[in-house]
């Protein structure tokens, strides 16, 4: 009995878990063949650094998406946190990001707003506050924040390590904490979660707060790399974060998603951008290619689920 069932499920499971990874490797292979400079160690590190900001943001987004929601405000929160960090101190930026997330959560849980609307409002508010605080000017970051974007040692970029650290934390939260298990329950069937004694509203507060916190961290890393926080920083990054989560195999209807998938998704986007640059594809066409890849990834996923 058990041998039959293993044979029946194993290949499907293997594909489902590694589809995005297989795609990433294939993509890297194609680019490497067309432009061997891609495999240069320094270039690969660059890809990692470029992936870091979106990846950290996307890890936060994974919590929200697994719980059946969406967070459109992460780009703006990242910018606001970085700006607050530049004007005061980095840790205060983190607190502001988490607070923005809490407000999202409260609007969704207690105000019963759809996540799309609540976070769309926050997208505008947080961006507006960033503009107000900055008076439209970029501001230099302090030493601590600049350190986040620097190299720990030659060939050891801190953003890359931070990405891996957030990856580990995300995996731990999703698989080893009650909050994580509840995210899957809420996203899979909110009513069943409620009837099983899960305080859905309280959980959502934490989930959106986490997303805000992760977005703030991503914003600080971005500012650190650039050495300054800009009023228009990270604009549109929320869409890249959502794309990374979806490429990673999460379902926007909730209940499905993993940290490894999101990491792979963010790497796919970074490899693609890097590869297209190396191949000297004009930036306007890069947009088109990235859109096609997102559609293909989602299409493959939907085929696999059938």
């Amino acid at each position: 009995m058990s041998t039959i069932s293993i044979r029946k499920y194993a290949p499907k499971k293997y594909l489902a878990e590694n589809g995005a990874l297989a795609g990433l490797l294939l993509l890297a292979l194609v680019i490497a063949i067309m432009q061997p400079a891609f495999l240069n160690a320094q270039n690969l590190l660059n890809v990692g650094v470029q992936a870091a900001v979106i990846a950290i943001m996307a890890f936060g987004m994974t919590f929200v998406v697994v719980a059946g929601g969406i967070d459109l405000s992460v780009g703006s929160i990242a910018a606001l946190a970085a700006m607050v960090g530049a004007l005061t101190a980095g840790p205060i930026g983190l607190v502001v990001g988490a607070l923005c997330g809490l407000v999202n959560g409260a609007l969704i849980s207690y105000g019963k707003l759809p996540p799309f609307i609540a976070t769309l409002a926050m997208l505008s508010v947080a961006r507006g506050l960033t503009l107000v605080l900055s008076e439209g000017q970029p501001h230099e970051t302090d030493a601590l924040v600049t350190f986040l974007g620097s190299n720990l040692a030659p060939m050891v970029p801190l953003p890359l390590l931070l990405m891996l650290a957030f990856f580990g934390i995300t995996g731990l939260i999703l698989t080893r904490t009650n909050l994580g298990r509840r995210m899957y329950a809420i996203g899979g069937n909110e009513e069943a979660a409620k009837l099983s004694g899960i305080d859905v509203r309280k959980q959502k507060l934490w989930i959106y707060a986490l997303s805000g916190l992760f977005a703030a961290a991503a914003g600080l890393v971005l500012a650190g790399r650039l050495g300054s926080a800009g009023p228009q920083a990270a604009a549109g990054y929320e869409l890249d974060a959502i794309a990374a989560v979806v490429i990673g195999g999460a379902s926007l209807s909730g209940g499905v998603g993993r940290a490894t998938g999101t990491l792979v998704g963010a790497l796919v986007l970074a490899v693609l951008r890097n590869g297209l640059n190396l191949l000297q594809v004009p930036p306007f066409w890069q947009q088109v290619v990235i859109g096609v890849v997102i559609a293909l990834a989602a299409l493959l996923d939907s085929l696999r689920r059938r």
């Binding site: 899957y184 329950a185 996203g187 899979g188 069937n189 009513e191 069943a192 979660a193 009837l195 379902s251 909730g254 209940g255 499905v256």
Partner: peptide, 9 residues
């Protein structure tokens, strides 16, 4: 299905 189970799990 609507209230008892998390079908994705």
């Amino acid at each position: 299905k609507g209230q008892g189970l998390v079908l994705t799990a």
